[in-house]
Amino acid sequence: MADLLAVCRVYRLLPDAGTVGVTAIDKRPVGGPVKVTPYGLYADVQADRRDHGGLDQAVYAYAQEDAEVWGAELGYDVVPGLFGENLRTRGVDVNGAVIGERWRIGSALLEVTQPRTPCQTFARHLKSPPRWVRRFTEANRTGAYLRVVEKGSLSAGDAVDVVERPAHGVTVAGWFGAWSGLDGAPHPVEPARLLLAAHDAGQVRLSKDMHSRARGAVQA
């Protein structure tokens, strides 16, 4: 059964060498039901609101299975929240989720919007493992951002039920691999066309970022 291992939100703002000067990547598990609003978990924040947060990146999910792979490589436990995620899942193929797929968790309904793009803030938070941004990219275990379709509340232990999956078939990992030019991935024009067709037909609502990238791939 797919479920939530932990629900995480910001613990404290930390100083950061990036242009914003602070980061809210320090997420840690919280107990009890947590309200979910269109802009994410109640009492969670983003420091860099140009590149993070908003309606299309309201919640970030990362799979325990992927965290364990990284834990073996990094040599320490990747505890819930360490990667800045709000939801640590178990039994959910987060990277294999189809763009536009919907999850019912507790009383909230969430929709997969796009993969995470790693940044140097992420690397600095982990004490800068060698080539971290590139390694995370090449592994194509990005986790997924979600928008809130129906607000509600959720808590650790809740089931994660996939209640809708679009027919276009482009997954989080499929798109990220194509867009990033990873070995073995298709040219991005093919998944881009599928995504745009589904968007235009009203079968899925692409985030602004996904729509822009898909358009760019088709027009290149």
Rank of each mutant, 00 (worst) to 15 (best):
Leu126Lys: 04
Ala167Asp: 13
His52Asn: 10
Ala197His: 02
Arg102Cys: 06
Val149Ile: 09
Asp48Phe: 07
Val22Ser: 03
Glu65Gln: 11
Ser128Ala: 08
Ala58Glu: 05
His187Gln: 01
Gln57Asp: 08
Arg104Thr: 02
Leu41His: 10
Ser155His: 05
Ala97Leu: 15
Leu182Ile: 09
Phe83Thr: 13
Gly184Ile: 14
Val78Phe: 05
Tyr42Lys: 02
Arg9Tyr: 15
Leu206Gln: 04
Ala63Pro: 00
Gln57Phe: 07
Glu190Gln: 08
Val160Arg: 02
Asn95Thr: 04
Leu196Gln: 01
Met1His: 05
Arg131Ala: 10
Gln46Tyr: 08
Asp56Lys: 04
Thr23Leu: 11
Arg90Ser: 01
Asp183His: 10
Pro118Ser: 07
Asp77Asn: 13
Val34Glu: 03
Val36Thr: 01
Phe122Gln: 05
Asp48Met: 06
Leu154His: 01
Arg28Gly: 13
Leu182Lys: 01
Thr171Ala: 00
Gly40Glu: 10
Asp209Pro: 00
Tyr145Lys: 12
Gly181Asp: 02
Ala47Asp: 10
Ala144Cys: 07
Pro118Met: 06
Thr23Trp: 08
Ala197Glu: 05
Lys35Glu: 08
Leu146Met: 03
Asp3Met: 13
Ala217Ser: 05
Ala173Gln: 06
Phe136Val: 15
Asp16Pro: 00
Pro115Arg: 08
Val92Leu: 11
Val112Ile: 13
Ser153Ile: 12
Leu55Gly: 00
Glu65Ile: 08
Gly18Phe: 12
Asp48Tyr: 10
Pro33Arg: 03
Leu195Lys: 00
Leu55Trp: 06
Gly32Thr: 06
Pro186Gly: 01
Thr137Gln: 01
Arg116Thr: 08
Asp183Pro: 07
Thr89Gln: 14
Ala2Tyr: 02
Arg205Glu: 09
Gly75Trp: 10
Pro115Thr: 09
Arg131Tyr: 12
Val162Phe: 07
Gly181Tyr: 07
Val36His: 00
Pro15Ala: 13
Leu74Trp: 07
His187Arg: 02
Asp158Trp: 10
Ile99Cys: 00
Leu41Gly: 01
Pro188Thr: 02
Val148Asp: 12
Pro130Gln: 12
Arg134Ala: 06
Phe136Met: 15
Gly106Arg: 04
Gly54Tyr: 11
Arg49Ile: 11
Pro188Leu: 04
Leu146Phe: 05
Asn95His: 03
Thr23Ile: 14
Val94Trp: 00
Phe136Asn: 05
Gly174Thr: 13
Gly202Ser: 11
Gly157Ala: 15
Arg102Trp: 02
Val189Thr: 04
Leu194Lys: 00
Phe122Asp: 11
